[in-house]
Structures are given as structure tokens and as C-alpha cells.
Design a protein around this nucleic acid. Structure first.
Ligand SMILES: Nc1nc2c(ncn2[C@H]2C[C@H](O)[C@@H](COP(=O)(O)OP(=O)(O)OP(=O)(O)O)O2)c(=O)[nH]1
Ligand SMILES: [Mg+2]
Ligand SMILES: [Mg+2]
Ligand SMILES: [Zn+2]
Length: 618
DNA sequence: GCCGTTTTCGGCCCGACTGTTTTCAGTCG
């Protein structure tokens, strides 16, 4: 019988900062096991962690690097797939080949895993490498070659053994240089101090702070500055802050950067780039270049990595080598500089792609065919259909919320204070609800058409699928949002049946924050989203993108899948105070990352139009 | 291990920074 910890969820290695989750189970300790007595559901997250782990083990074993990359790529694609890989499989390994990066070998291995709960290949290679070695890869600056050296030359197989050896390096680690020893000690000391991934909003505001600070310190030497990386692509979670600047005095800017008051540790510092770790644990990378390099550099630093690799591969086939510095004609060696990203893509016959699309998920093909979508923008939103007031757990009056929304260009909001049964958040009973309606009526009269407050509610869907409020009350609202907060750990069958029952209710207009995820805290529920999408289309229920930074629910790939199947969405802030409406920007980011255009988002309509689209009014 | 309007075999993106390997390997972005 394997130890209990071996059944813990596999987690992807800390150093790679996969956006698996912010506060994942402690890395290294929970070595995934595929030896199960029976079959069970496997989440994409777990499958990705397993493939990643295989990649780690193979790298320590010194396997062919392209084989390792193949496992890592498959892991990446699976982690960000909108559909459950086990669902795609459906009992036939051939179905798995449709997944990018999954070929015959990985398909067969996953087939065995799903059928038997065991993957012999993983068990085999796992037995060849001491268990504690993989976690050594999490030490900054330590990669597979170094780990293999510890193991083969010094018989070190765990972090504790390495720490012990470092107490007397001359004796225990002969041939390792002095600086390397220092870096190892330092690196081990910072394990756990560096953040893994943070919410988009957290990274966004910290990046603003760093850029302002850098501007104060060296503004005269900076001609241009921009974010790059996952932050510019607006991913829901961010591994580090990537900054890019143009300067005629690069060294001045780099020097100023590593001396910013936010800096705790300098990881690297050279002529064109520097990496630091801030006191808050976030890493920040800065690259500094000349104006003539801006286009290629911004394209490079924005990524994603996989997007870059594919773009560079296409360039190669046209006889061009692309780097952050320039294109180079391979035959003549002639350099071609691009000052804008448009030029970089135009060289290859591609339209410019919004950064949000650059995830190697079809955007390159669309750019070549000139069929990129016209993505929704913040300015397209006319209203917000989820926000809270003092009547329940919000901190502002309805009027203050309305003014906050109006200041941001919106024309209507739905006040969705919680229903009572939740027992939390001072939910409204029918009596208080009718009092609230009077206040809303008065406010709307005062606005006299200039703004509209809608009577709404965030009604809890009970564990059995019934709603927390009686139908006669639900009928009195302008629009009703139904959500789940309790019993989110129900089985897939139970929670799906529960949600579908609510979606079939004629007075449920929107199903909000569908998976219930709280990034870094709570995993998405086991809800079968494919069934939810079908039910949404069948019943005319609208699905929500909740833009609160810890929710992002539906998230990018799920929203994309929903709309591809024909669902209609709304993008809401879930604001609890007037500034909370700014979270609509994160919701818009998810929609844009989901390739979504204005026509599929119903709160881009005026209320009079939107009202006609609600199933209660059909 | 994956993949294919130049290939079912032979490629697989490209460069910065670090340390000590005096000409480059390892790690990272
Ligand atoms: N061509 C190429 N570009 C890369 C590679 N690795 C990273 N980049 C580019 C694209 C990335 O978006 C950018 C910043 O790298 P990061 O490691 O910070 O990744 P990114 O910001 O995309 O995700 P993150 O949230 O930080 O994990 O650098 C690579 O191996 N090749
Ligand atoms: Mg980054
Ligand atoms: Mg980075
Ligand atoms: Zn809620």
C-alpha cells in the first residue's frame, strides 16, 4: 500500500511556474503515483503534472532534449485545454491524437493510465531516479545537468543531503567553484520566498509601480517602456513582470533598475537585460534596446514562448532567421530591422495579432489567412449585470454604485445582492427585497432615463438544484443571476445535475461564475462544462465571465469553447464597491483571450435590447 | 516524442548571462 502522500495531487515543478495554481500543494513532496487500485477521473491539471514530471525525470536521466520538450509541450497544451482530456479520450487512444503535441506514444500511455489507473512507463523511469532529485530542480540556477552531477558524482539525492554537503563544500563537493557554492546556498535559501504565480491584477499594479519608480530614477534615459510577457497577453495569472525599454543609455537604465527600492535580490545583470526579485517575492525582468529593435524585441518579449517558436519556424522556411534583434537573411547574412510589431508580422504575410491571442492556439493560421477576429473592447460594454451594495455584502449604497458605473461609461447596472439562504453576506429576505426595489424605483425616477438600475439578485442554487427564492419573487426582478457557493465539492454527476436543473428554470437568466474557482485557493468544481454549454444553448441561459481577479470565471479557454458552441455571454465585475467596476477590464481580457467579439456578449447591448433577449421575456 | 503543400525520416527558435570549461556548457527567458 503506497503512502498516503503518494495519492496527493501531482503538482507541476515550482520553477517553471506553470499557472496550475498559486498555492499548489508543496512541490516535490507529493510525488505523483499512477499505481491506483481502480480507475478514476484525471483532471487536465493532474495529467499535465504527470507529463511534466516525466520530462523532469528524463532530463535528469540525460535523455534526448527534444523528447523532453515533447513531454513538456504536451503537458502545456493539456493544461490549457478547454476540454477534459479524459473526455476527449472516451475510451479510444486514437481520439487523443487530435490534441496538439500528443502523438502515438503519449496517446498510448494516457490510454493505459485512463484504463488501469497506472502508467507503466512512468513507474519504470521513476524507479531509475531517486525520489528527492526532482525537487532539486526547483533551486534557481540548478538544472538537470547539475542535478545529475550531484547524484552521480557526489551521491546527493535529496535537498537535505545537498544542504548538509554545502556545510563543508571542499570535502563534499570537490571541483565545484566558490561562486557556484554561494549561489547554491543563496538559491536554497530563497526557495519558498519567491512567489509562484499571482493574479493578473496584482501583477498589473506592481508593474505600474515599477515603471513609475524606474521613470523617476532614470526617466531621462528612457524613450519608451512597455510591459511584455504574460502580463501584456493578460493571462489570468502571471509568473513574473516582464518589462521592455528603449534607451540611448541602456547601462544607466539597467543600473537604476537593479537599485530600485523594491529590489531584494539581483538574479542577473548584463548589458541588455537584468532580472530581480522584489521584496514581495515577484520576479521582474527588464530588457533594454535601441529604437530600431523595438518591433522584433516587443514581439519576442511578449511571447508566448510557443507562439515565438512557431513564428520563428515559419520565418526559417522563408529563409529568414528571427531574433529579438532583427530578421537575418540566412543566405546573405543581411539584417532587416523592424521598428514595429506590424512590420515583424507583415514580413511573414501575417496580420498583427493582439497580444491576448498569442498562445499558439490558432492565431498564426488566422493571421496568415487574414481572418483574425475583431475582439471585444471595454468601450463596447453598456452595462454590468453583477454587483453588490450595502444591502448585502457590498460597501457602498446603490446610488454610489450607480455613480461608479456611470463614471466608467456604463448605462445600466444590475444590483445582485445575495439571497438569504446562503447564510452569509447578509442575504436579503423577501421583505427587505421589496424595500430595496422601492429604493431602486426612486433612484431610476431621479435618473430619468440617464442611467438605469436593474432589480436583480444573486440567487443561490441549493445542493439539490432548487433555488433559494420562491418563483413569485423571482418573477418580480428585471433579471436573475444564479450561482453556486455551497457544496462545491459535489461529484461531477451531482453538481452537473444541480446546475442543469437551475438552468432549466424559466426565471434564471444568467448562470454566474460557473466553476466557482478562486485562483490559488479553490479549484474549479467538477462541473461538466460541456453539458452546461449545451444546456445554455437549449434553455437560453446566459453564461457569465466574472471579472473579479480571483475568479476569472469563465476563464479564457472556457469562454472560447462556450462561444464556439453557440453560447451567449455577459461580462460582469462582481463589484462590491464603486472601484470594483474596474474589474470589468479583467473580464474583457478573458473574453479577448477567448477570441470573443462583441456580438456574443449581451451586455454590449442597450438594456432595452438585452431585455428582449432574456428567456423570461421570450 | 512529434510532425509533414518542400519531408513518414530528420529535423526540432534563438540569444543573454554566468562561471572558470581558456572556447563553452548550463540555465534561463
Ligand atoms: N523565442 C523564445 N522566447 C522565449 C522563450 N522563453 C521565453 N520567451 C519570451 C516569450 C515570453 O513571453 C517572454 C517572457 O518569458 P517568461 O518566462 O516571463 O514567460 P511569460 O511571461 O510568457 O509567462 P509567465 O507568466 O512569466 O510564466 O520571453 C524561449 O525559449 N524562446
Ligand atoms: Mg513572464
Ligand atoms: Mg520573465
Ligand atoms: Zn457570487
Amino acid at each position: 500500500m503506497p503512502r498516503k502522500s503518494e495519492y496527493a495531487k501531482p503538482t507541476r515543478s515550482q520553477k517553471k511556474k506553470s499557472d496550475a495554481k498559486k498555492s499548489a500543494a508543496p512541490s516535490g513532496k507529493a510525488e505523483p503515483s499512477t499505481v491506483a487500485s481502480s480507475t478514476r477521473p484525471w483532471s487536465n491539471q493532474e495529467i499535465a503534472a504527470l507529463l511534466d514530471r516525466i520530462g523532469d525525470i528524463l532530463s535528469i536521466l540525460g535523455e534526448n532534449r527534444f523528447k523532453i520538450i515533447a513531454y513538456q509541450r504536451a503537458a502545456d497544451v493539456i493544461e490549457h485545454s478547454s476540454r477534459g482530456v479524459q473526455d476527449i479520450w472516451a475510451g479510444d487512444p486514437a481520439n487523443l491524437r487530435a490534441i496538439d503535441g500528443v502523438g502515438e506514444a503519449i496517446a498510448e500511455k494516457l490510454d493505459e493510465l485512463f484504463r488501469t489507473g497506472k502508467m507503466s512507463y512512468y513507474e519504470k523511469i521513476r524507479a531509475q531516479v531517486p525520489e528527492g532529485l526532482v525537487e532539486l530542480l526547483a533551486i534557481p540556477g540548478v538544472g538537470p545537468k547539475t542535478v545529475a552531477k550531484f547524484w552521480k558524482e557526489f551521491n546527493i539525492t535529496t535537498l537535505d543531503e545537498l544542504k548538509h554537503a554545502l556545510e563543508d563544500p571542499e570535502k563534499n563537493l570537490p571541483g565545484i567553484g566558490e561562486k557556484t557554492i554561494e549561489n547554491l546556498k543563496q538559491g536554497i535559501g530563497t526557495i519558498g520566498l519567491h512567489t509562484t504565480r499571482v493574479w493578473l491584477a496584482v501583477a498589473f499594479y506592481f508593474a505600474q509601480e515599477l515603471m513609475q519608480e524606474l521613470h523617476q530614477a532614470a526617466g531621462a534615459s528612457i524613450q519608451k517602456i512597455s510591459t511584455g510577457g504574460s502580463l501584456r497577453r493578460m493571462r489570468p495569472t502571471i509568473g513574473d513582470i516582464d518589462l521592455l525599454a528603449v534607451s540611448n543609455k541602456p547601462q544607466t537604465v539597467i543600473d537604476a533598475f537593479v537599485k530600485l527600492p523594491q529590489v531584494r535580490e539581483v538574479l542577473a545583470k548584463g548589458d541588455t537585460k537584468a532580472s530581480i526579485v522584489a521584496h514581495n517575492g515577484m520576479q521582474a525582468d527588464l530588457r533594454v534596446l535601441e529604437p530600431k529593435n523595438w518591433g522584433t524585441a516587443l514581439q519576442y518579449f511578449t511571447g508566448s514562448k510557443e507562439h515565438n517558436i512557431r513564428v520563428r519556424d515559419i520565418a526559417l522556411k522563408k529563409g529568414l532567421s528571427l531574433s529579438e534583434w532583427s530578421y537575418t537573411r540566412i543566405k546573405s547574412g543581411k539584417e532587416i530591422f523592424c521598428e514595429t510589431e506590424e512590420q515583424v508580422y507583415a514580413m511573414l504575410g501575417m496580420d498583427w495579432m493582439p497580444p491576448e491571442l498569442r498562445e499558439a492556439s490558432g492565431e498564426i493560421e488566422a493571421a496568415l489567412k487574414h481572418t483574425l477576429p475583431k475582439l471585444i473592447r471595454f468601450e463596447d460594454l453598456k452595462g454590468d449585470l453583477q454587483c453588490h451594495s450595502k444591502w448585502s455584502d457590498g460597501s457602498a449604497t446603490i446610488r454610489e454604485m450607480a455613480e461608479g458605473a456611470r463614471a466608467r461609461g456604463l448605462k445600466y447596472i444590475a444590483i445582485t445582492d445575495h439571497s438569504q439562504g446562503l447564510g452569509v453576506a447578509r442575504g436579503l429576505d423577501p421583505k427587505r427585497t421589496r424595500e430595496q426595489w422601492k429604493e431602486i424605483d426612486a433612484l431610476n425616477s431621479a435618473y430619468d432615463g440617464a442611467f438605469r438600475v436593474l432589480k436583480s439578485v444573486e440567487v443561490e442554487i441549493h445542493a439539490d438544484g432548487s433555488l433559494d427564492l420562491p418563483d413569485d419573487l423571482l418573477a418580480g426582478y428585471d433579471i436573475v443571476l444564479a450561482t453556486t457557493h455551497s457544496a462545491l465539492n459535489q461529484s461531477r454527476e451531482k453538481i452537473t445535475a444541480r446546475v442543469l436543473k437551475a438552468m432549466h428554470h424559466p426565471l434564471v437568466d444568467i448562470f454566474g461564475h460557473p466553476t466557482g474557482q478562486l485562483i490559488g485557493t479553490r479549484e474549479p468544481s467538477a462541473l461538466d462544462l460541456e453539458q452546461v454549454y449545451r444546456a445554455a444553448i437549449e434553455t437560453g441561459t446566459i453564461l457569465e465571465i466574472d471579472g473579479t481577479s480571483e475568479r476569472m470565471d469563465l476563464t479564457d479557454v472556457n469562454a472560447r469553447r462556450a462561444v464556439e458552441l453557440g453560447c451567449k455571454l455577459v461580462i460582469d465585475s462582481d463589484a462590491h464597491n464603486p472601484d470594483g467596476f474596474d474589474d470589468l477590464h479583467w473580464g474583457i481580457a478573458m473574453a479577448r483571450r477567448g477570441w470573443i467579439t462583441k456580438k456574443d456578449v449581451l451586455n454590449t447591448l442597450e438594456w432595452d435590447e438585452l431585455r428582449k433577449r432574456l428567456k423570461r421575456n421570450l
